[in-house]
Design a binder for these strands. Structure first.
Lengths: 216, 216
DNA sequence: CGGGCCCCTTACCACTTGGTAGGGAATCGC
DNA sequence: GCGATTCCCTACCAAGTGGTAAGGGGCCCG
């Protein structure tokens, strides 16, 4: 689903298939044989490119993390201060995970299966920019744009979790709501609304026309 | 962690251990042997009480679902209409999952591993009362208590997901925020705040003193 | 032409998996 | 006392697991 082309590079092809299968079935329930069959090679060809199943796991996760580490700074740099930018950043984040639900599923699975590893990554790679975002919120709070009782750090974590799980389990959640209009669009819209309404004060006196200008 | 007593009933003991292990390591990565060792019996004793590993899985899930089906109606019945009741219901839901993070983890894992099954349960067991809650929100919206642009169904789903994932991965998330004051309390408080702020209008003219009466 | 390297194969390995067969000990109703 | 039932054990099994060993075919560089 994530790749149409069979990929000329077999290593990348294996990584791709493994990512999909690990996300869908979990690490323990995905045998090297299954991955190999799906790719169209033998199990030993897989083991040729990745010295062990564990190495394959690491490689799969690294792909996600690298992608993340690449995209996040770019997105956050675009986040100056205004409410419009907030939408842009959150939208980017949402689209990142919505583009491939496997990303979120892998992250969630990993946080369950190997909490120690994930904690390390969180402490090292996530905390820095979480601090940055949190301090941005704190500034906006002191400036009176944000609700006074926001817990910036935890707010950001909760919104991120919401993005991840909403995209990761969207296909399942469809069964819970009445069928009809595009559910995915509703998920995204409502998520954005929740995030916005719980952060921004409801448009105080001054600062009315300033909001929701067109963005380039 | 969830059971201190070794449980005189071996079947219940097995169920308990299996629940914990399935939640922590996933179904595929938990062998019958491991469960048996943890319980202190042989693998065949486990297979005596549960005819197959799959049967054990079902039994574990049924315990969770039964608990859920038992608790939810009771909680929802207490939900008349006021904002105070909202806190009570959401708080109850939160405490239900916070009391044992394995519950949330199991549900999340199950939604990944067996989406078809979960969809069935959602459609049959969750949708009815989700409709009820949603229509309650819709009424409050028409009465002017709630934000006009709330998508009731999706709002409830998102809040539920937030509760589940926040409790399920709380221990991991601790690594992302600055250490110090009780993180769990912050998670709960901020989650409640987000849910409340994104649903209720910010205290219109009348109805001011009514909100946030003394809480213990 | 020939050696070396890369990519992948077949063949095989020790080990674990979920599950079966059958029997033994304790307990209960009679 | 005695059969039946419940509970759990030892012993075993076929199938599948991750991983190793060894080698073959294509290809580049000399």
């Amino acid at each position: 689903m994530v790749s149409a082309a069979p990929a000329p590079d077999p290593r990348a092809h294996i990584l791709d298939v493994a990512t999909r299968l690990f996300a869908a079935r979990g690490f323990g329930d995905t045998s090297l044989q299954l991955i190999a069959d799906e790719v169209g090679v033998t199990k030993q060809a897989v083991l040729h490119h990745f010295s062990s199943k564990e190495a394959l796991r690491q490689a799969v996760i690294d792909v996600i993390l690298d992608h993340w580490r690449d995209v996040l700074p770019r997105v956050l740099l675009a986040a100056a201060a205004s409410e419009d930018r907030f939408d842009a950043v959150l939208g980017e984040l949402y689209r990142f995970f919505a583009a491939d639900p496997d990303r979120g599923r892998l992250l969630v699975r990993e946080s369950f299966d190997r909490p120690a590893e994930v904690k390390r990554v969180l402490a090292e790679s996530v905390r820095p920019w979480l601090d940055a975002v949190a301090s941005y919120i704190t500034r906006g709070r002191e400036a009176g744009h944000h609700h006074a009782d926001v817990d910036p750090e935890v707010y950001v974590l909760h919104v991120m979790q919401l993005v991840i799980t909403a995209t990761a389990s969207a296909s399942v959640l469809d069964a819970a709501i009445a069928p009809g209009s595009d559910a995915r669009a509703r998920y995204e819209r409502e998520l954005m609304r929740i995030a916005r309404a719980s952060l921004f004060k409801p448009a105080t006196h001054h600062e009315r026309g300033k909001r929701r200008r067109g963005e380039p």
